[in-house]
Design a protein around this nucleic acid. Structure first.
Length: 398
DNA sequence: ATGTCC
């Protein structure tokens, strides 16, 4: 075990044990963020790795200032876990793979329509009705993206329980150990991107004063993007299950790219999470790569971690070097299978290399570091069955 | 991450 909380410098902490390799560039980015005006504390989680200017896997707590660039372009990106009506041991992989490829993402226009009305309903339900009215033009621009997974590390993956680590906590959740589950990792697609771009075009990378109209405007759009992303994950799950004739029940849906008002030591401030799972939203899923386990954990709220957890394994290799490193080792057909017996549906040649299990760090170490730091309890471990990845391109040809 | 980028 050993301690996995490192104090890098004043206001900069890293949750990582000695055996967890963290890239030096990521630590430098973390220190850089800590020096931004009004930045009070930053914490690197065990999946910390370098991003474009700002680190991924970093929780950043500021006072007075809000930094949209720290949330990034994929506002509202998160993980949603669903229990399906299927028995995990009765999955017909060949048949399901064919059905998913053929039918899961067809009829985009009707799903766009369904998405638009679902988003409207949901915005009303969470009290964002007026905010939506004021931003209809922005939102309408992404009508075509409802229910699409997107690229990068986004995926929708059928999974099964392979080990229950804590019977009491597992039973409390009331979920079926034998069921097939679906984990959806996606976000706000082009909407979040547009919101960040608008902000950067107007203000560059400087923070916004929390009392300003500009901060209000950003937060309004940010909150709409969170809602949009939540609806999007629900739509992705629905269309995948529809095509296989499965029912589904949501177990959890937690965003990991967002900024929210959070008090630390009794002082109010703003917590920016980029690739960081909140520890105060109930149980969460921390997935590894497509070739490793995902962990369902119960987070433990703590000021040390700024009430945050890792959101995944974290990249080990940058995307641009994956194909070069693995091209001679694997054919595409080999990348469509994993050592755990799961299938990978991904027609993008670069992406299937970029997301290879080798490109990611060990999820077992990441989760062990969280447990060693007293930040999480493992409930159960899940293994992939079918991983679906796609980048939607159809509508552009019209 | 992004209708990526001609």
């Amino acid at each position: 075990m050993g301690n996995s909380i490192q104090f890098i410098e004043s206001g900069v902490r890293l949750i990582a044990s000695e055996r967890n390799w963290i890239e030096g560039d990521a630590i430098e980015q973390l220190k850089h963020v800590s020096r931004l005006e009004g930045m009070n504390q930053v914490v690197g989680l065990p999946d910390l790795h370098p991003g474009r200017g700002y680190p991924i896997g970093a929780a950043c707590w500021s006072q007075q200032k809000i930094y949209p660039a720290l949330v990034g372009n994929d506002i509202g990106c998160g993980m949603a876990l669903y229990e399906t009506s299927a028995d995990a041991n009765k999955v017909k992989q060949d048949k399901w793979e064919k059905a998913l490829r053929k039918n899961a993402f067809k009829d985009q226009e009707s799903w766009s329509q369904a998405g638009a009305s679902r988003f409207c309903e949901q915005a009303k339900r969470v009290g964002l009705d007026e905010q939506l009215q004021a931003n209809t033009e922005l939102v309408d621009g992404f009508h075509h993206s409802y229910g699409t997974i997107g690229g990068g590390n986004h995926f929708a993956e059928f999974q099964k329980v392979i080990k229950v680590h804590n019977d009491t906590l597992f039973t409390e959740l009331g979920i079926n150990k034998k069921a097939l589950f679906l984990l959806v990792h996606s976000g706000s697609r082009g909407l979040g991107e547009a919101i960040l771009r608008q902000h950067v075009d107007a203000f560059g990378h400087q923070g916004l004063d929390q009392q300003s109209v500009d901060a209000d405007n950003y937060l309004t759009k940010h909150n709409l993007a969170l809602c949009w992303a939540e609806v999007n994950r629900e739509l992705i799950a629905a269309r995948m299950c529809d095509c296989l004739g499965l029912d589904l029940t949501e177990i959890l849906d937690v965003n990991h790219n967002l900024v929210s008002p959070v008090s630390v030591n009794g002082q109010t401030g703003w917590l920016h999470r980029k690739g960081v799972t909140p520890a105060d939203q109930g149980v969460v899923m921390i997935p590894g790569s497509r070739g490793s386990s995902s962990y369902l954990v119960k987070p433990i709220v703590s000021d040390v971690s700024l009430s945050s957890l890792a959101h995944g394994a974290g990249r080990k290799w940058v995307r641009s070097e994956c194909q070069g490193r693995l091209r001679k080792k694997y054919r595409i057909s080999e990348l469509q299978r994993t050592s755990l017996g799961s299938r990978v549906i991904c027609d993008d040649k670069s992406l299937i290399y970029e997301e290879a299990p080798e490109a990611y760090k060990s999820i077992d170490i990441v989760v062990a570091d969280l447990v060693a730091a007293g930040l999480a309890e493992i409930i159960a471990e899940f293994a992939p069955v079918i991983t679906y990845k796609n980048v939607y391109k159809e509508a552009c040809c019209k």
